[in-house]
Amino acid sequence: MDKNMKILIVDDFATMRGIIKNLLRDLGYNNVVEADDGNTALPILRGGGIQFLVTDWNMPRMTGLELLRAIRTDEKLAKLPVLMVTAEAKREQIVEAAQAGVNGYIVKPFTANTLREKIDKVFERIAASA
């Protein structure tokens, strides 16, 4: 896995972006950019260069699920790996996210270890299917 890959973290809470950013740095990923909701994330994604997206679900203006759907219908972004880190814990929502094409799903509160495991798993699966 490329530790220099560019990762976009999308969450409306700056504290949570800070936590994820620091955990990623601890795992060796230092190339991180941030956005506070889907609306601000999408132009960054369309600008190119983002190789992995970590997004919250419940955000103002454009939610994480809407962002995911926009990504999957965008020719250039359709294959971008997306990890959802959210407090939404209803089974039907997890199924909805899976159907929309999410690559991993973490419920808050989570541990540093869970984040590492899920990132590894997302990229293992991508490598296996490539």
Binding site: F13, G18, I19, P109, T111
Partner: peptide, 16 residues
């Protein structure tokens, strides 16, 4: 430090 970092998670959850 990681433990302190993770403890700040409360702000997001309680904020919601």
């Amino acid at each position: 430090l990681i433990e302190i970092l993770m403890a700040q998670e409360y702000q997001d959850i309680t904020g919601q």
